[in-house]
Amino acid sequence: MPDIIFRDGSIRQNQWFVVSRPERGETLDIPEQKRVLIPADLWIENREQFAGNENIGVWLDSHDEPEVLADHVNELPLIAVNFPKFSDGRGYSIARLLRERFGYENELRAIGDVLLDQLQFMKRCGFDTYELRPDKDIRKAARALNFFSQGYQAATDTDLPLFRRRAS
C-alpha cells in the first residue's frame, strides 16, 4: 500500500486497504485482519453487520451523495473521497458537506487522482490525509502542503475571511 500524507505534512504508512465495488452478482470480499474502506452505499445496506467495527471505514465516489451517511457519519473512523480524475472537483464539495453540514469529526481522506497542486485546497475543505497518485513524489507533495500560512477565504479551517481576522 502507498504511504499517505497527513495534514501536518508528515508521511506515514497507510493502514487502510480500499475494497473495490464488487461486480454485479458478486459479494463484497472484505479481507480479514485488515483495516478496510468499503463503498459507502454497501456500508449503509449492511450497517448492523458493521456497526462498531473500528476496522471498517467507507469511501465515496465523486458522484455519490454524502447525504447517505448523514445520520451515521461519526460512527465511521475514516471516510475517503475518491477523485477519479484531477479535474473533477466534486470531492471538495463532498468534504465540506461532511464537515460543515453533517459534522463529521474523524479522519477524512482524499484518494484517487490526487496531485500536489490540490493538497492545499483539499486541506482547506477539511481533508486530513492524502493518498497521492502513485507516479507522484510524496516527499515533494508533503512539503507543498503548507506553502501558504493563511487563506483569504473562510473555509473549514477558519470561519472568518482574512480581512475579518485582521480587523479583530
Rank of each mutant, 00 (worst) to 15 (best):
E54N: 10
N14H: 07
Y92G: 04
G57Y: 09
R35C: 06
E67Y: 13
E65C: 12
N74H: 05
P22L: 13
P66A: 15
G103V: 05
V36H: 05
R96I: 06
I56V: 10
V81C: 14
R21Q: 00
V58G: 01
V73G: 02
E54Y: 06
N82Y: 10
Q13L: 13
L76Q: 09
V18Y: 06
A51E: 10
G91W: 08
E75D: 12
V68W: 03
I56G: 08
A110R: 05
L97W: 06
N46L: 12
E54C: 08
R24K: 11
Q15H: 08
N53K: 15
P22N: 09
Q49G: 07
V81H: 10
A95N: 05
L69V: 03
D88K: 12
G57P: 00
V36W: 05
T27P: 00
I11N: 05
Q49P: 00
I11A: 07
P39R: 09
V73K: 02
N82S: 12
Q13H: 13
L108I: 03
I94Q: 10
R24A: 07
D41W: 14
I79V: 14
P66E: 09
P39V: 09
N14L: 11
E75A: 15
R47D: 01
E23S: 10
I56S: 09
D61T: 09
Y104T: 01
F102A: 08
R12T: 00
